[in-house]
């Protein structure tokens, strides 16, 4: 017994390479099921149909109009839901944290956000069809109350840009709420009091202190929301049945059958996505670090 305790305290207790044995299974797993598949896509995107190295696939990405359209549509939807979901999610988080609403509403909203941010894919799509589809509940409600037929008198279509965006919002707001609520809690009461004490109004406090302090956090979360929407597949597929050509749906089509007649181009599309996701994750963690420095 004394020996084991000593062994733990003493300088290198196990020799260096043996220590790494303890994490081998994890690394093995990560290589087999995460790194190798990713590398396969990267390598594939630099290989032509004869198996030779090429940049042609990547160059072709920028020449095929429908691929550019797919990326652009995905970027627009992700940006719209990130900004819209971000702003509204922030306001919601604000209302239950420093906004002065009763405490029980806070825990209700946080629980609900936990559920809603994980409620995606097919069930979410069906719910929105039941809500805003041609015979949906809200569609009917608007028709009965305002006399407006959404599908005949307006441009609205659930299976389009705005429809998909509105659906994505259902998991975007809640994610924002979950990230922003702790950040808003990090605002110290003393900052507000110090600002007031120095003569600042509530508006001045928010514009000059609270929002600047929260800004890295808000932007970082929006970037995370962007990535969250950008990588989404199931919800869009279930909602539009593959009719709305966002990038994930195009990649899905390529997996099902080589619709591009060029496997290399499919890999390149996938790699393009990974690059965009990686950029947003880097942006997020950079901003997150900045914000932690302030909100410690």
């Amino acid at each position: 017994m004394a020996q084991t305790a000593l062994k733990l305290k003493g300088s290198p207790p196990v020799s260096d390479w043996k220590k790494w044995l303890g994490v081998t299974p994890f690394f093995l797993f990560a290589i087999l099921f995460l790194v190798l598949p990713s590398l396969r896509l990267v390598m594939g995107s630099f290989t032509n149909s004869e198996g030779q190295f090429t940049f042609a696939n990547l160059l072709q990405l920028f020449q095929e109009q429908f691929i550019l359209d797919a990326y652009w549509l995905s970027i627009r939807i992700s940006a719209a839901t990130a900004i819209g979901g971000g702003i509204f999610g922030f306001l919601l988080a604000y209302s239950v944290t420093v906004g002065g609403l009763p405490k029980p509403l806070r825990s209700a909203l946080i629980t609900f956000s936990g559920v809603a941010s994980n409620f995606a894919g097919v069930p979410l799509a069906f719910s929105f069809i039941a809500t805003l589809g041609r015979t949906g509940f809200v569609t009917a409600l608007i028709k009965n109350v305002f006399g407006i037929n959404l599908y005949q008198q307006t441009e609205f279509d659930l299976y389009s840009f705005w429809g998909l965006s509105l659906t994505y919002m259902y998991f975007q707001f809640p994610l924002m709420v979950l990230i922003m609520a702790p950040a808003l809690d990090g605002l110290k009461r003393e900052w507000r009091e110090a600002a007031e004490n120095l003569g600042a109004s509530t508006t001045q406090y928010w514009l000059r202190v609270a929002l600047p302090v929260l800004l890295p956090s808000i932007l970082g979360s929006m970037i995370l929301l962007f990535g969250n929407a950008f990588g989404a597949y199931a919800t869009a597929y279930a909602l539009t049945g593959g009719r709305l050509g966002i990038i994930t749906i195009q990649i899905g089509a390529q997996i099902r059958g080589d619709v591009l007649h060029n496997p290399g181009l499919g890999y390149a599309m996938a790699m393009g996505m990974v690059i965009i996701m990686a950029i947003s994750l880097i942006g997020y963690s950079w901003l997150q670090k900045r914000s932690e420095r302030w909100l410690r």
Binding site: V14, L34, S38, L41, G227, Y233, I251, A270, A278
Partner: peptide, 28 residues
């Protein structure tokens, strides 16, 4: 025992955010 592995392991656990399900299944 192995705090020096923390960074690399944390990095790996973040990778799934960069490789969404559709890409992962493609590679798999």
């Amino acid at each position: 025992r192995l705090p020096e592995a923390r960074r690399v392991v944390e990095f790996i656990t973040l990778l799934p955010f960069v490789v969404p399900a559709i890409i992962l299944v493609f590679g798999l």
